[in-house]
Simulated scan of single mutants.
Amino acid sequence: MPEKTAVTSYGSSRNKRGLHVMLVLMLLIIIVFIISVNTGYIRLTPLDLLKTMFGKGTAKQELILFDFRLPRIVISILIGAGLAVSGAVMQGVFRNALADPGILGINAGAGLMVMLLISFYPTTSAAPVFLLPIVAFVGAACTAALIYSLAYKRHQGISPIRLLLTGVAVAAGMSAAMIVLTLRLDPDKYQFVATWLAGSIWGTSWKFVLSLLPWIVILLPYVIYKARVLNVLNLGEQTATGLGAAVTKEQFRLLAAAVGLAAASVAVSGGIGFVGLIGPHLARRLVGPKHQLMLPASALLGALLVITADTIGRWILQPSEIPTGIVVAVIGAPYFLYLLARTKS
């Protein structure tokens, strides 16, 4: 009885700590949000920001805030949450600490389909915005199926290193296909593809927010709802089957949700990598391995990472910009090498 009480007390304290961590992350996101709104070639003081928010700013201030900065900031938060949770799900399903939609080539597959769609339209702005996430999902799903089939070995399953190397190879092939595609594009579209490959957030209007929002609003709660299933899957397929889980069906559903989150994010963000790697790992360190806490914490950390990277990219070389993906890569690449060095199988 005392042992049971101690375990319950430990679990309760862990949950409280997790909630405190998430509250701190929310506060940090709000702080960076305020800084990001005031970051740009034309500055808005906190007083100007308040006036504009309540409809008392000038026409120019309203244009800057509501038409340019707010949509981009909201998109940064959404894609950060989507990519981080997608990575968390892939790490849980594959039981691979290095799984990430960017590293495994899922983002590249989605991006290739987006490039193909855009190439059929006279300008990038003419492409149907609400069709982009669907097309990206098709590309990401086909890429995920290809990677899974190439990495899977009968009687051996999928080893972390084989999955990683297969994903890197497929991502390289997809990126090469996109570069070949650019040879047939006009200069404007070529510039767009170049910025996309660098991870520039190119969808910066409210219509892009609306095209991305349904995917995040539907798939993110679904994945969090399946947190207990992910906990069971982490125990291994045999143990999960013994506990009554429909392993194959649950893996398929969770991977479909992860691919959907990554594809929809990539459709408006470009090739931003490492968010799905860094977010879950930091969340696991802060709140523990239970997915009930780890998934929401991953979403918050991913959102914080992307909005911070986007703010730094817009601020450091004003009036020019550094693509968000490059800023994230500066942070993520060393962390990825560190994790790779620690991986033994």
Rank of each mutant, 00 (worst) to 15 (best):
R69P: 06
N15R: 11
F120S: 14
L50I: 14
G92K: 01
G109K: 02
E237W: 09
P71S: 13
M294E: 03
P334L: 15
L78T: 01
W206V: 01
L132M: 15
L277D: 00
G203S: 07
A169G: 14
N231G: 11
G55E: 13
I322S: 11
A283I: 00
G167I: 05
L23V: 12
T143A: 09
G87V: 00
V85M: 06
N107D: 12
F208A: 02
I216F: 01
G288M: 06
A172Q: 12
T182R: 08
L131K: 12
G139D: 06
L104A: 05
Q91I: 13
I278M: 13
A136M: 03
D48G: 12
V74C: 08
G332R: 07
P221T: 10
R43A: 14
I29L: 14
T39A: 14
L219A: 12
V21R: 01
A329S: 14
V89Y: 04
G102R: 02
R69K: 13
A141M: 15
M90L: 14
V287E: 04
S269Q: 02
I64K: 05
V232M: 15
P296D: 09
I331G: 08
I158T: 11
S205F: 09
L150N: 05
T8S: 06
I224G: 01
T58C: 12
A171T: 06
L146M: 12
T241Y: 12
Y121S: 10
L300Q: 03
R69G: 01
Y225L: 12
T324A: 12
G109N: 04
A262Q: 06
I134S: 05
T204I: 12
D186N: 15
A81S: 13
L282H: 06
G80F: 03
W215K: 02
L254K: 03
S86C: 07
P334S: 14
D310K: 02
S200T: 05
V89G: 01
S76T: 05
L19C: 08
T123F: 12
L146N: 06
I307Q: 04
A309E: 01
I31G: 10
K60L: 11
Y41R: 15
N231R: 09
P128G: 11
V268G: 02
T45H: 10
L235P: 08
R184F: 13
M26W: 11
A333F: 15
L230S: 04
L243C: 10
K226H: 10
A303T: 01
L25S: 04
P122D: 15
V24M: 15
L19D: 00
K249T: 12
A151S: 15
P214N: 13
I42F: 13
G332K: 08
V268H: 00
S200L: 07
